[in-house]
Design a protein around this nucleic acid. Structure first.
Length: 390
RNA sequence: GGAGGGGUGGCCGAGCGGUCAAUGGCAGCAGACUGUAAAUCUGCCGACGGAAGUCUACGAAAGUUCGAAUCUUUCCCCCUCCA
């Protein structure tokens, strides 16, 4: 198994490590950031642009593509890579996060106790999760087997076992029962994966256990003892940044470090530095691409307008007369030709170009961040890099 | 010339005797967003004040009424139809 996959650690300092994750569609230099193209598209930009911005890998989502246009459809189009015109590595998430997000809303809403809108999650059973489709309202069951079969049809290089992403507001008892069910689901995912395996995919197991160190330890041991190619850290990571770092640290402690380690759903700049310090190899997050569509351009600390934000909000009126690019030292196409004033105007005028232009900057920003982090590990100067970016 | 319909906060547009400083929407000003139901969501948005509150407001003026954006009269201005 995993004969077409390989993970080599090239260099390490303390826990941080520089690696190469080999897949049938190429090598991913780690630490790496994975951009979210949930519905088989990174919103607003093309695979060609992603490549020009030096992106290594993108992610799509099982739940969304399962609901529409369907796994068989994408398979009959030749798989995701061919369908969307992307020949580099791909990752698919299993749909486990949607058990959380469709049941509880966004991470922030859940942590802050805000009521989310109408839930389209109907029920979680031992068999799987029952959803009302976001697409057509029909009732659908997503089970471990179904998730793996779907991910097989989609054809991403790296796929993920089906789990339940537990919310922050759940008791230890619920977290434990959910974790145990996730373990059974993950075992079923692995069995289904092995049954269908033809060498072109590798599967991640996910560590659950919420904010509880004993549960995280048990979960890590479970994943280690099964033949997953790699390990992802999932579930709630707590309600504050500090708690998140603690949870990641406790989760990472018992992971088999010969396997690649992915941190699900995290993409803040300082979060990535902390993750890298703890030995995380890959990250994925909607944040860079989502805030771009809301007018947020990621910037290094010297360009910020707020102590708490890692981006500037180009919708703010102060940018109306700012002729500088988002960042003076950025090499992205947006910074090479557009001023903050123009981007501000495009946002106000509701022009679609604003969304893609800022997305382009944020993607290049994340890729440059990861390039510098890799360089920083290699030259043992990660702290200096961090001072520039955080 | 005849008949009718209107004028409401930056704009559009509800309200047609008290619960109206006035529903909505847009624009404006902020905020949020971390395995994407997200080009989304939330808050503020007459003036002064931290707030209680005070003042000025529904074309203009005069009235009726305990009370008027809402009723009456006159005036000004718009629009539609007929000649």
């Amino acid at each position: 198994m995993y004969e077409n996959f390989k993970f080599d650690v090239i260099f390490r300092t303390e826990k941080a490590r520089l690696g190469e994750l080999t897949t049938p569609h190429g090598v991913i230099k780690t630490p790496a950031f994975i951009f979210c193209g949930t519905k088989a598209s990174v919103k607003g930009i093309s695979p060609q642009q992603l490549k020009e911005l030096k992106s290594q890998i993108i992610l799509s989502n099982t739940y969304h593509l399962f609901s529409y246009p369907g796994a068989d459809y994408i398979k009959s189009r030749g798989g995701l890579h061919k369908f969307i015109g992307w020949d580099k590595p791909m990752f698919t998430d299993s749909g486990g996060f949607q058990i959380f997000s469709l049941g509880h809303g966004s991470v922030a809403d859940e942590i802050k106790g805000r009521r989310s809108g109408i839930s389209t999650l109907c029920k979680i059973t031992e068999e799987g999760a029952i959803f009302r489709s976001y697409w057509d309202g029909s009732i659908q069951l997503l089970s471990p087997e179904k998730s793996i079969q779907t991910q097989k049809c989609l054809g991403a290089d790296l796929i993920v076992a089906f789990d339940e992403c537990t919310p922050f507001h759940s008791s230890k008892k619920y977290t434990e029962l959910s974790m145990e069910r996730s373990h059974r689901w993950e075992k079923r995912s692995l069995d289904e994966f092995i049954k269908l395996d033809n060498g072109d995919q590798a599967i991640y197991g996910i560590i659950q256990g919420g904010i509880y160190s004993d549960l995280r330890k048990r979960s890590a041991e479970f994943i280690n003892s099964n033949n997953f190619f790699a390990t992802a850290i999932g579930g709630t990571l707590g309600s504050t940044k500090e708690q998140m770092y603690e949870v990641v640290e406790m989760a990472v402690k018992d992971i088999d470090i010969s396997r690649p380690i992915h941190l699900l759903g995290i993409g803040g700049i300082s979060d990535i530095f902390r993750g890298v310090d703890l030995g995380i190899d890959t990250f994925d997050c909607v944040h860079p691409t989502r805030i771009a569509r809301h007018g947020g351009a990621l910037v290094k600390n010297k360009y910020r307008d707020s102590k708490v934000r890692e981006h500037i909000n180009l919708k703010r009126s102060e940018y109306a007369n700012d002729d500088n690019p988002i960042e003076l030292d950025c090499d992205c196409p947006t910074c090479c030709s557009f001023s903050r004033a123009y981007l501000h105007y495009l946002l106000k005028a509701n022009e679609l170009l604003a969304l893609s232009a800022i997305t382009i900057h944020n993607i290049r920003f994340m890729n440059r961040l990861m390039e510098e982090i890799r360089q920083g590990i290699f030259t043992s100067s990660l702290n200096e890099v961090k001072l520039r970016w955080c």
